[in-house]
Design a binder for these strands. Structure first.
Lengths: 224, 224
DNA sequence: CGTCTCTTTGACAGCATTCAACGTGTGTGG
DNA sequence: CCACACACGTTGAATGCTGTCAAAGAGACG
């Protein structure tokens, strides 16, 4: 709905990664996938849906989340270009997926990929690689959530996203509420913490969703 | 739901797996491994060590953890019989591993397994399965840490371990400090929360490390 | 019996949440 | 073009939970 600013997720490494080594190993997989589009806020799949398909992000940002009984929402991950999400051991998805921004995905049929993997060892290895990446990411998230202070979490979050873009300017595709649900904080605490960081001249706002990191070392100290 | 997830997708089969279909698919792997023993409190590998070996738990409990700059420790996972831990994408371990109790492990050489995987597709598939189990477990941990209250975390933790043993009596192999570092709480808060749960007649202590769950539904409500 | 470690309990301070109000920006309709 | 509505974000005040500091209890072991 409300087509926001085109704060498009300007993600430099787009070109870099495609031209890197990953392309060739994806070749066999690519044939099994179909391109799909989702617009901001739309559901890609829900918890409990059949996990007969999984996705890879071409552009845009996707959030993987779980809705708790009391209305709270926990975001388990934000996925960006190159990330694979939605494949499971079981028959159904254990988490929901939603488009944070307009995004382009490749949709893979699980059966088809399994058949492919039987013939082509590189496919199996590719899937293994994606699983390990997911594992590494989830472990990082646990470590992030285990941190004590709100400032630590927010600083770590900003550094993480700065690292992805490779610049010291972070373009946040997601809302404060998304950030809060990802960090296990409330929206007010996130807002207050960002304001405090700005007062401390560690960051500066270009606009609400574009943040410049001015004292990266200080932020790293905070993130411990 | 954490416990459900753990039960259904990750480790239901402790006993079942050994006798069921899992055994044969491990066969080719088993040959590549050597049995090793670690006694309580000993380090298995440290963060930064070469990740040229990984392990599978035969018996006992292992903790995977990270030490932070300020002396805090975060436990990313407890591994029990059947779990595989310590294999990485990179050349070094990103986390440390220590024996929580005396334990027996199988140690696999990474190179050797990679060679095996080249020839034997079942090995590759087995590794993929382990990676996915790890992913599922790490996601569950993130969800656990994202919870707000101490009671929610502790209740979810107890239910998780009850699910592993399949009984309503939990034998905790780890100390209160271990639990605290796993849940992102302090040892005092863990202790207080357990005492409160006992006062509410939801649990009862056989001894300090053996807890009987008396109102599982109430605990599940707490765990949300 | 004493010592050591682990665990529990208490008192208090600090920080995040809650509830509430206000500010900001974007799109719509007059 | 301006005014309004609405969603999103920020800020303030008070409560409550968890962390911190301190001390006492409980087992294990020599």
């Amino acid at each position: 709905m409300i087509p926001h600013l085109a704060i498009s997720t300007t993600r430099q490494p787009a070109a870099a990664r495609t031209s890197a080594g990953g392309a060739e190993s994806q070749e066999p997989l690519r044939a099994a996938g179909t391109v799909v589009q989702f617009s901001e806020g739309n559901e890609i799949f829900a918890e409990g849906d059949d996990s007969d398909v999984f996705y890879k992000v071409i552009s845009g940002v996707v959030r993987i989340c779980k809705f708790l009984g009391d209305g709270r929402r926990q975001i388990e991950a934000f996925h960006v270009e190159g990330d694979v999400f939605g494949f499971e051991l079981g028959a159904t998805h254990t988490l929901s997926a939603e488009a944070v921004s307009n995004c382009t995905l490749v949709c893979y049929r699980r059966r088809g990929v399994e058949v492919l993997a039987q013939k082509d060892q590189t496919v199996t290895r590719q899937l293994f690689h994606y699983a390990m990446q997911g594992l590494s990411r989830a472990q990082g998230h646990s470590l992030l959530l285990g941190r004590r202070g709100a400032a630590e979490k927010v600083a770590a979050f900003l550094l993480d996203w700065a690292g992805r873009s490779g610049q010291d300017v972070v373009n946040l595709a997601m809302s404060r509420q998304d950030i809060a649900d990802y960090l296990g904080l409330t929206i007010e605490t996130v807002s207050r913490t960002l304001s405090q960081l700005e007062r401390d001249k560690m960051i500066a706002f270009s606009n609400v969703r574009q943040i410049q990191l001015k004292k990266i070392e200080a932020l790293e100290d905070l993130a411990a």
